[in-house]
Structure formats: structure tokens, C-alpha cells
Design a binder for these strands. Structure first.
Lengths: 197, 197
DNA sequence: CATAGGTGTGACCGGTCGGTAACTATTCGA
DNA sequence: TCGAATAGTTACCGACCGGTCACACCTATG
């Protein structure tokens, strides 16, 4: 007999899912409340507005992502290059499994109104991701860690949106190979300058 | 005395702009008609539904993109590698100038309902772009034209959405360098196998 | 000048949106 | 056991959505 989650938690996770499936603008608060087996009034007792709820779901998602990073580091302690390869593999797996891409990035596309509170959440999340990726590249000792981490970031974002636009037969098909080629390219360059062949 | 455009053309170009600024779901047909200095009834005489209008604006945008490609090929005739570098430069310029990214890709993110007529337009457009880019890579004689063109596609899409999410200080800052590094990497590999140093 | 076709106007439709009020039912700790 | 907090229910609000109606207007062509 699993105890039912608290209404607030049900709302957040349900909203998360429905925002993914229908888009933030594509689903109403009433439908969210009903899907969460509660009602609109309770929703509004916990969240002041739909925008509040949006921010909360984005925070929720970004916390799960942070947990993924911790797990990644724990899996290959003191081996940043292995972590990097594992990151690529995990992202490729997400790409294959997942149908809707990155919630935070999609929200950034969907919410054009500048000054929307979600933008701060999105930017914080993305910056954190990029910081961790860059640290990984730096620790792995590649020749240009900033360039490589930005390259990998762009490849990842691009693969997700590209899959939405072109389908799984498009460029995202070669996401993993593209990442590995980029990593190899900057590893080789590092070797050729330090080992002088 | 410039002759005013026909209502239909005014509607398409105005809708294009407003969809960019507010998102497809973020602007109503009434506001579009008004901004186009006409009215909703005239809009509905030319387009059977909002979805029709959406498709038409996407087609409009993709025709402009096709013209860009023709111009690119005319600028450096019989020099695919120069065309490739020019493509990178042009995309970097777009990235710097433009605030909203690729309309087609954004529409793909925003319109989740599968079976929406816009998806066919988007997929056609993206596939055409990718075909031309791949041909360019192949003609330029790089070692893995498919992998390079997909890499460049992902970098481009990623740069645009990344700019929306993280701002212009994020990974998109190094878009051009990332592209050039990728091109160089596959050109080097080609040289080392064909020229054997 | 007449007529026809594209255009403009304003009211209107049913539906849904985000958000609120008032009231009842449930839960749970002091 | 009592009381306070939390949750559920129903109805409602004004605004806006995509889409349609009837009708007046303008202009160009015969």
C-alpha cells in the first residue's frame, strides 16, 4: 500500500509530464489538476499562478539532472575521460529513448516574453550543466576544454531539436559519433603538441 | 508612391514576424490581421484556418532559405570548400543578428500534436537543408561527408536554441570556431589518408 | 454606367483560458 | 475530543480563442 504522494508533489510531476507532451502553452491548469487527481483550487493554493507552476516544474527537472551528474561522477571516480565518454553515451541513450527533448530548452523556445520568471531558472540550469561539462573536459586534459565543452553542448541541444524537426533518421542519428569525433580531435591535438609525435 | 502589397502577402509576412516574436501559440489570428492592416474575415478568405496560415508562413520562410543557398553557390562557383566556409560564416552572422532562432525548428518544438500539417513542411525543409549541406561536404572532399554535415547541422541547431536558453554568452559564442574545428578535423583526416604525409 | 469580386466592418458563436469565491469534507496533532 | 489546517466541490468571472455571419464598401473592367 504505497502512501499516495502529497497533492503538491502530484501536481508538479503531472505538470512536468503534461508540459512535455503538449507544450507549456498547450495544456491548461484545469487539465493538469484533474490529471493529478486533484482540482484547480488546490493547485492555486500551492502555486500562485501558472507561471509559478512552470518555474517549479523546471526546477524539479533540473534537480533530477543534477542527480544524474553526481551519479556520473560516482561511477568513474577520478577518471574524467571515462566520465566524458559515459556522458556522451548517456545523452545518446536519452536521445534514443526520449521523444520530447530537453524541457528546459523547449521552455526557452516556447516562452518568448522576456522577463518571464522561467528564463532565470532555465539560464541557471543551462549554465550549471555547461560548467560541469567544461570542468569534465578540463580535467580530462583535452587541448581546448572550453571549445570542446561548448561543441558538445551545441551537439546535444542540436541533436534534440533536430530529432523533433527531422525525426530520428536525421542528424541526431550520428550524435554519438559526432561527439566521439570531437573528443578524439581535441585529444589528438593535445597529444601531438605535448608528445611531439 | 510604392504600391501597397496585396492583403494576402501582407498577412503572410506579418504572421511570419509575429510568430517569431510571440510564438505560434502566443499570437491570435485577430492580432495578426490587425497588424497586417486588414481584418480577420479577409484572412480567413485566403487561409482556411490558422493551421493553414502557419504552414504558409513556414513555406515562405523556407523559400527564402532556398534562395540563400542558391546565392551561396553562385558566390563561389566550383569551390565547395569556400562555399562551406562561407556557409559557416553566414550562419554565425545570422546567429549574431537574429534573436529568435530558426522558425521551422521553433515550430517543431512548439507544435507537439502529431499529424499537424506543419510537421510535413518542417521535415521537408530540414531534409532539403541537410541534403544541400551534405552535398557541399561531399564535393569539398572531406573524409566523412555525412558525419561532418550532420555535425554541422547539429552545431547550428544547437547554437540557436542554446542562445535562446543561455543567452549570447553561452556555447553559441564559439559556434564558428566549433564548425571550423570540425571541418579542419575531417579535412586533416582526409589528407593524412590520401597524401600519406 | 452597371455589375461583379475582392475588401472592410462589427457583431456573434461556442469553447477554453487563467484565476477566484464560498462552502463542505477530511485529516491530524494538541 | 476538539480545533485548525489542508483538501475537495461547484459555480462563477472576464478575457480571449478560432471561426462565421450578413452586409456595406470600393474599385476595376465590361
Amino acid at each position: 500500500m504505497k502512501a499516495r504522494q502529497a497533492p503538491r508533489d502530484r501536481i508538479v510531476s503531472t505538470a512536468c509530464e503534461l508540459f512535455r507532451q503538449h507544450g507549456i502553452r498547450g495544456i491548461g491548469v484545469d487539465a493538469i489538476a484533474e490529471a493529478a487527481e486533484t482540482n484547480k483550487m488546490t493547485l492555486y493554493r500551492h502555486f500562485g499562478s501558472k507561471d509559478d507552476l512552470i518555474c517549479e516544474t523546471l526546477r524539479f527537472t533540473s534537480e533530477k539532472a543534477a542527480a544524474f551528474w553526481d551519479q556520473l561522477e560516482a561511477s568513474f571516480p577520478n577518471d574524467p575521460m571515462a566520465q566524458l565518454h559515459s556522458w556522451v553515451k548517456a545523452r545518446a541513450q536519452c536521445l534514443a529513448d526520449d521523444k520530447y527533448g530537453c524541457d528546459l530548452a523547449n521552455a526557452a523556445v516556447e516562452l518568448k516574453e522576456q522577463g518571464h520568471p522561467a528564463h532565470a531558472v532555465i539560464e541557471n540550469f543551462k549554465r550549471a550543466q555547461q560548467r560541469r561539462l567544461e570542468k569534465l573536459c578540463r580535467d580530462a586534459g583535452v587541448s581546448e576544454p572550453e571549445l570542446l565543452s561548448d561543441t558538445l553542448s551545441m551537439l546535444m541541444e542540436g541533436a534534440q531539436v533536430s530529432k523533433l524537426a527531422t525525426g530520428s533518421e536525421g542528424p541526431s542519428m550520428r550524435f554519438m559519433r559526432a561527439c566521439e569525433a570531437a573528443i578524439a580531435s581535441f585529444s589528438l591535438a593535445a597529444r601531438s603538441t605535448t608528445e611531439t609525435i
